[in-house]
Design a protein around this nucleic acid. Structure first.
Lengths: 196, 196
DNA sequence: CGTCTATTTGAATGTACTCAAAAGCGGTGG
DNA sequence: CCACCGCTTTTGAGTACATTCAAATAGACG
């Protein structure tokens, strides 16, 4: 739908200015796709097809541990990007799976189309550089938190950083994101807000 | 020294092609700096001056936990970049400190000069986009490892990934990087290779 | 209403931490 | 060249944070 593309263009225009011809190129390169709740966009081991921008709903990416445990790497609500950068850049099998947590709509651009877009609109290098830098900042912050904070403090950080996500996520996903078992998370929650 | 700049240009030329005029611009934007062992490039709370490329020696970046514990975020041997991206991009106080572990030489470019360079040589957006993407991949990989692997496996991964670093780093730094206390790390090492 | 999944609760366990102290190692100055 | 000092590594005992397993309870969805 046209509305989804507008959301994307709005995001891009926060960082760079595109002229009408360039806007058309961008429009043509991204493809709308609908995902149903619990549908997978990609599964671990596959090679990522392209870069994904979420316009509606929520996706999550996660890695499987040896014991089969899922570790949530990222939540992507509307207006967020999601991808396994490793798989996209190196074109090797993904360590991550990506799944819709709600019925969602995404705009996807394939790697060849993205590479072409970089050639046609060099300004986009700037946009995606900034995007990668910001993502980098988030990962670094999360790494520091994981190394230095207790589970409770990591949860509190999460609440501050993503207040709107808390209400719409099953708590096992939040537990996984902050890096604890669902059982422990449950106990932790009850210990700070004893059952009412 | 001229040699240091050549190392930098070599790195850049792995990804983009610069003409002689552009090379001169790059040369002019980076400044050589020497650091003595244990000298700090920046301390937590300061605002990062610029982006750093190491040409000789080794630096490390680390964050301080609440208890005063140091958490190594990155090692940067020769040919690596090091920075607190958060502080550089947002121009806010750094969460990280950066210290030389050996006598080292670095090339530094200030944020204003970097911004100017982006304007003068748009191709550099591409180079630093790729750089940020690769760094992102590393952080993500490390995050997954921290979430899903035991300390011993994280150490084994570290050995595979940075074999050349192991011999020249004090083990307390390796312990900190993989996220365990030096005491525990020592016990772990003796348990896999009992004293000879 | 029944089934499936998510959450809670409890007990036993494990991985890694803290604190304290001893031993090892390396560099520096006499 | 040796002795000393400071820092790193080792060792041990006690502890904490979080996990695992099992089972009960609660919710959500068709």
């Amino acid at each position: 739908m046209e509305k989804d593309i507008l959301i994307l263009l709005e995001e891009i225009s926060n960082h760079i200015r595109l002229n009408p011809a360039e806007i058309d190129l961008v429009k043509g390169a991204f493809h709308l796709q609908k995902l149903k709740k619990k549908e997978f966009l990609i599964k671990e081991g596959e090679i990522i097809k392209g870069l994904v921008f979420v316009t509606q709903g929520i996706l999550r990416s996660f890695a499987l541990g040896e014991n089969g445990m899922e570790h949530v790497i990222q939540f992507a609500p509307s207006r967020w990007w999601i991808v396994d950068m490793f798989s996209l850049v190196k074109q090797k099998p993904s360590r991550l799976s990506i799944e819709a947590l709600e019925n969602s709509q995404i705009l996807q651009i394939s790697k060849p189309d993205l590479d072409k877009l970089y050639r046609d609109i060099p300004k986009l290098e700037r946009f995606f550089r900034i995007l990668a830098e910001n993502s980098l900042i988030n990962y670094q912050s999360r790494l520091i938190n994981n190394l230095s904070l207790t589970a409770l403090k990591r949860y509190e950080h999460f609440c501050e950083q993503y207040p709107e996500l808390i209400q719409c996520l099953a708590q096992k996903y939040i537990a996984s994101y902050i890096g604890v078992s669902p059982e422990f998370f449950s106990k932790m929650m009850n210990s700070i807000a004893p059952k009412r």
